[in-house]
Design a binder for these strands. Structure first.
Lengths: 212, 212
DNA sequence: TCAATCATTGCACAGGATGCAAACTTGCAT
DNA sequence: ATGCAAGTTTGCATCCTGTGCAATGATTGA
């Protein structure tokens, strides 16, 4: 858990600046809305020059959206890949995802503000989805390795393997999006991880009912 | 099929202008890339003023991306909703989607150019997916009606009904995205509709294999 | 033909975004 | 500690995006 190998001052300052900008943009955007908010306003609030803002984020939106979820550490990934054919695939993916979003959870206030802004400005949500593509590709590659492990026959056909891994990944992401929607729309204070388990369970029941 | 109730001259010109801009942006972007392309360039090529460009599209990207797929006409939708519990749900959704993208298919050259640009600029692809949200909501609402028809018991619980309809929709969209990816990445000249049938078939086989 | 309606255009302007070079801060080897 | 290399912040200049407004011109329907 402790990935803090004594960051240098420079690195710590960088992170602080980044977070200062993010906090500033969330605070101001929540108060008066995105459109009546200029880079200059944000920079003033964050105590940096407008030019510095662009050193950290390519646009106003990018600062609001927040960082894309990351894959968990290598140990978890390795465990998933080598879990063997006996372990349920979707369960494994779900846990990887939960780990991923859990590490990304920062401040409760910020999370709430971001959620509100996502509701208010659909294009932000959209861009966030766009940023997921990287995550998506990483995940697909991992799933591919797992499939190759579980089913050596399938591993012979690279095309089929890749196609299947991608489809499985996309279905898993469908569940993730489902969880996200309910979590973002709902008023309940249920955490995203819990909602994710619910959504994956519903996906499971869907698959069952689909088979006569 | 013939939804052309004698468009007036004004309407025809509007459509022509829109298409002229789209053609211009695709041509120029394919030649020299998106970033070295200004609104002024595009407008010159399309023989309209820069101001007019913005009357049609909110941004450069919007012009490249193309229009979001539409739901098919009401007859098809009605047929889907009332197909009854005997008809396979995913098959029905797939056919609705195929109809939707088929009407959106314009010119072969444009389609190809757009495909290339989507490969080259992932954020375009992403934005396109984002634009699907409207389509997504429309589809979810239709699926919800179908579910309510098929399963009156489920229809009692509005929450559960909506949640399930949304999940099913998202899974179907996962298949659509899968088809889209393969179609965009692949060199094959196979059409998107065919690829969609392949992807939905693979989804089907996935569900089967998931059930021991 | 005339008036209403809608589309196109030019103009002005605020804000977004980037390259560049100067000033400053941090890291590190001596 | 000192000094140099590397990285960060900033101001400045500049181009592009995007929008409101008002004038002009084309299309429509009576």
């Amino acid at each position: 858990m402790s990935d803090a190998p004594a960051l240098g001052l420079r690195e710590r300052k960088r992170i602080a600046t980044r977070r200062a900008i993010q906090r500033a943009v969330l605070r101001l955007a929540s108060e008066r809305g995105l459109e009546q908010l200029t880079i200059e306003d944000i920079s003033r609030e964050a105590d940096v020059s407008p030019r510095t803002f662009f050193n950290y984020f390519g646009s106003k939106d990018a600062a609001v959206i927040g960082d894309a979820p990351d894959l968990p550490n290598d140990a978890s990934v390795e465990r998933f890949i080598t879990a063997g054919p006996g372990a349920d695939l979707m369960d494994g993916i779900r846990e990887l995802m939960v780990e991923g979003v859990e590490t990304a959870l920062e401040d409760r206030v910020e999370t709430r503000q971001r959620r509100e802004l996502h509701k208010q400005y659909p294009h932000l949500f959209a861009q966030r989805m766009a940023n997921m593509r990287q995550f998506e590709n990483a995940l697909a590659s991992i799933v591919e390795q797992r499939l190759a492990q579980d089913d050596p026959a399938l591993a012979q056909d690279a095309e089929a393997l890749a196609s299947r891994a991608r489809l499985i990944t996309l279905v898993a992401i469908a569940a993730l999006r489902h969880a996200w929607s309910l979590w973002a729309d709902g008023e309940s204070s249920e955490g995203l991880p819990e909602q994710m388990r619910d959504s994956f369970a519903e996906l499971e029941s869907l698959l069952v009912s689909a088979r006569p």
